[in-house]
């Protein structure tokens, strides 16, 4: 059996098995009734109202009131859920209030020590935010690794200019885990991130996408073309690896090579070009095939040419 046929078989069998497992688990209400009960919200009798919370949490209340969510929940709720104020997210506070703050039963504190499972905590946020850019949160790499919304967002105060991030900027927020990416902005050849003209979410949607690397577009190239549309074509003479994936040659997070290349020229081009004569020559550094722009001294239309005689990307 050929590779494709074998794979299709494995996929179909795996898919059917997966669906079966899911169906069994999903339909067996008896087995998981206990889990469901835990997840269901308590009745309205347990709510005490935000003003009660304010008595002890005056500072938090004041800070929250300055946020967009605070203004909505505390002053202009759009629905009954928002009208529950603090308890809309934290859960009913009656037990907590009656125990003078001793009991946290039924409460979600969203702190690092909160025993509430991450997906339960996140489901509180997704209850309102599961739309638009958050449509594909489930199954995203951040969801799969158990990242809490509060790992990146500080809901209770305006710590960043926008989006209520835990750090003043997006780069610092994402840089909590993506240390290498944060360092790459210091590279010689970089997009204007450290100058504040771009940020991580210019290209990525951290809340999940259906494509690779949480990119905001259907492909790497489609994303790059949103600003570099001159390379979109279609061209009369295409450079196949360039039209398939810009990242075949470029490292968009920053590089120590010109034009954010993954390898310095001419070695980058020589990885693939082994016809005859000059592309195959190891070269002396003091030749026109190496210095200045190296290969693109002549083959400057390397992303594609529309010139009838531009087959070698020289026109």
């Amino acid at each position: 059996m050929e590779g494709r046929g074998r794979f299709l078989l494995v996929t179909v069998v795996g898919g059917v098995m997966g669906l079966l497992v899911w169906a069994v688990l999903a339909l067996n209400g008896h087995v998981f009734a206990a889990a469901e009960e835990t997840a269901s919200p308590p009745g309205p009798s347990g709510f005490v109202g935000s003003e009660t919370c304010r008595v002890c949490h005056e500072k938090q209340y004041a800070r929250f009131a300055t946020t967009t969510m605070g203004k909505l929940f505390l002053k202009h709720p759009r629905n009954e859920k928002e009208a529950q104020g603090c308890e809309s997210c934290h859960g009913p506070g009656k037990l907590h209030a009656e125990s003078s703050g001793e009991s946290y039963e039924g409460l979600i504190t969203f702190s690092k020590k909160d025993p509430t499972p991450v997906d339960r905590r996140n489901s509180v946020c997704l209850g309102c935010h599961q739309k638009a850019a958050r449509l594909h949160w489930q199954g995203s790499v951040h969801e799969a690794r158990g990242l809490a919304c509060t790992a990146c967002h500080r809901v209770m105060e305006n710590h960043s200019e926008r989006y209520q991030l835990v750090k003043p900027t997006q780069i610092e927020t994402c840089g909590q885990c993506h240390l290498q990416r944060k360092a790459q902005q210091m590279r010689f050849s970089h997009m204007p991130l450290r100058e504040g003209k771009m940020t991580c979410s210019s290209c990525h949607n951290p809340h999940g996408t259906v494509g690779d690397a949480l990119l905001k577009a259907n492909s790497v190239n489609e994303l790059c073309y949103s600003c570099h549309a001159e390379k979109r074509g279609p061209f009369l003479w295409e450079h196949p690896p360039a039209m398939e994936n810009c990242a075949n040659c470029h490292e968009p997070h920053g590089s120590n090579h010109e034009a954010m290349l993954i390898t310095a020229k001419p070695r980058l081009c020589q990885k693939c070009h082994m016809e005859t004569r000059h592309p195959t020559q190891p070269h002396n550094p003091a030749t026109r095939f190496v210095y200045n722009s190296s290969c693109t001294n002549c083959h400057s239309m390397i992303h594609g040419s529309n010139h009838p005689s531009g087959r070698a990307y020289q026109r």
Partner: peptide
């Protein structure tokens, strides 16, 4: 994409994408 967390401790995901 199909995702599921049938019980608290188990998460499942399967997906297919065509370009």
């Amino acid at each position: 994409r199909l995702t599921s967390r049938p019980i608290q401790s188990v998460g499942l995901k399967s997906y297919y994408r065509f370009y």
